[in-house]
Amino acid sequence: MTEKITPRHHARTRRATEGWDFLVESIRNHRTVGSIAPSSRSLADLMASPLRERAPRVSNVLEVGAGTGSVTRVLLPRISEGSRLDIVEANDHFAAHLRRLVGCCPHLPEKQEQVRVHNVGVEQLTTDRRYDVIVSGLPFSNFSPRQVEEIMGHYFHLLRPGGTLTYFSYRGSRFVRTFLTSRPEARRQRDVKNLLNRYHHRYATGCWTVWGNLPPAQVWQLRRPLEAVESSGVLTAQPDMAR
């Protein structure tokens, strides 16, 4: 008797396949793939929440470090008529997977031109577009402080005033690495954390923990000030003249 293939069975098979692909790529490219498993649906929903909150307005959205598309799947059906989604993924294998995902998406029969997959690092993304929402899945804890500073500066340059940046990190990973790595590596981790804390202090509007993820994740949401100036690559809010 032939087993009936149900949508739920298909989804389980897809998740298992993508989970294996993610694990393989994390071993091959541990510096740029920051986890051993794709993001959970709970984490993906939270990461994509700024786009849901903007509905039904037209939005320009940038997703960086999309991996196998856990967050992409949540973003795609929320792309309204006239909106734009640019997906940036430096890993060749993941980028090819994302192009197939976009090509087969049932929510985009007439909106294919609104979604683009860019197989580059975000530092190499050339565009004059400004974004209302940026969703970042990059593993900042794997990068040097200089790289993180460059990427965060680029994010805020690409954000429209009032736009939001959402990114996540894994809870507890820094402390584990501090005890298991060399002193220079521990210093690098600390410097990255301190750098990100400065951005949190200036621009954070929310922080949440997603326990139903492997490993548990901490999600940060930052907003570019409505009134801001850029000087020497550093974004600063203009003073409130009413104070």
Rank of each mutant, 00 (worst) to 15 (best):
H93C: 06
H93V: 10
F94E: 07
A95F: 10
A96H: 05
A96R: 12
H97G: 15
H97C: 11
L98S: 09
L98Q: 10
R99S: 02
R99D: 03
R99E: 09
R99L: 01
R100I: 13
L101M: 09
L101R: 02
G103R: 05
C105N: 04
H107R: 06
L108E: 08
P109D: 10
K111H: 13
K111F: 08
K111N: 09
Q112K: 14
Q112N: 06
R116I: 09
R116W: 04
V117A: 12
V117I: 15
V117E: 08
V117F: 15
V120R: 01
G121K: 00
G121Q: 00
G121M: 00
G121R: 00
V122T: 03
L125R: 06
L125I: 15
T126G: 06
T127I: 14
T127Q: 13
T127Y: 10
D128M: 15
D128F: 08
R130K: 13
R130Y: 01
R130W: 02
Y131R: 00
Y131M: 00
Y131F: 05
D132S: 11
V133W: 01
V135H: 00
G137D: 09
G137Q: 03
G137V: 10
L138H: 02
L138I: 11
L138F: 02
P139F: 11
P139S: 03
F140N: 04
F140G: 02
F140L: 02
F140W: 11
S141K: 04
S144T: 15
S144F: 11
S144D: 07
R146T: 11
Q147Y: 03
Q147G: 06
V148L: 05
E149A: 14
E149C: 07
E150R: 10
E150P: 03
I151C: 11
M152R: 01
G153T: 00
H154F: 09
H154R: 14
